[in-house]
Amino acid sequence: MNKTLFAGLFITLVIMAAALFGKYFAPHDLNESQQVSYHVDPNGESTLIVPPTPPSGDYPFGTDKYGYDMMAKLLAGAPYTIFGSIGVAFARLAIGGTLGLMLGFFGQPKKCREGRFSIWNLLNGIPIFIIVWMIMIGITMNPLTSTLKMTLILTVVLALAGIPSVASTMREKAMVLREKQFVLSAKSIGASPWTIVRTHIFPHMKESFIILFVQEIVIVLGLFGQLAIFDIFLGGTKMTFDPVEYSSLTNEWSGLIGAARDNVYMYQWVLFIPLAAYILFILGFHLISVGLEQLYRKRFAKVSQI
């Protein structure tokens, strides 16, 4: 029994279930907002309730400064975060992985140029989220198109930006595999290149594909967050002037974090609760990837000699 894998699967499945069905059980929905209220109870004690209110019985995750329930916001945004990240990772793996497999099997091995100072290496110095920021910044503010379309644009950009790294990882793995003896023997009994890729190379890389998929989800979630810090939210940014404020149109989690960045000092739950959900989700996938690695290591790896 692989406890790590189980814990990871449990966390992610619970969060996904909450994202899909949570809105039917949530105490408040996105349309209702907490109003300012003033009560005097029989003992003469008066209470004034002004949003944002900290987590309490009626609002388990508290409310934001406009009185909206944080839980409702989280539930509304969850599908975007969850399926957005999974979708981007899937696209990266499907396109980049296939490309890498082909390049690795059919391509020529590159001459060794480790540590050389070339333009491509220099470009590695530009982090991916900056590239995406450059592309998205002209589009994302107060978009007139639907949030779904905005989500799609950002996910496509993120998927494209990640394909090269996935492809090169897979290419290296495929290159190692094609030197193996079983490939040689398959060739010598007359198997076509496609058959070799399909029945010999790919099955050996299945585990790498699965692990890389889970790791890519984590990376994509990180990118969502980094972009959100710079006010680019999945599904578009609502920018209000006077004072200048940025908020997420979809209530997607990293967007909630990015928009509530200044709440480190006051009303901390507005930042802390989305952050906690986001961390929990990342940890879930991380545990899955660690669990899978353990599983495969037990099956295949050599042992340390010291």
Partner: peptide
Amino acid sequence: ELTSVLPDFVIVL
């Protein structure tokens, strides 16, 4: 490993 998986901005926050 757990801390390494958290993105940089999460660690800062």
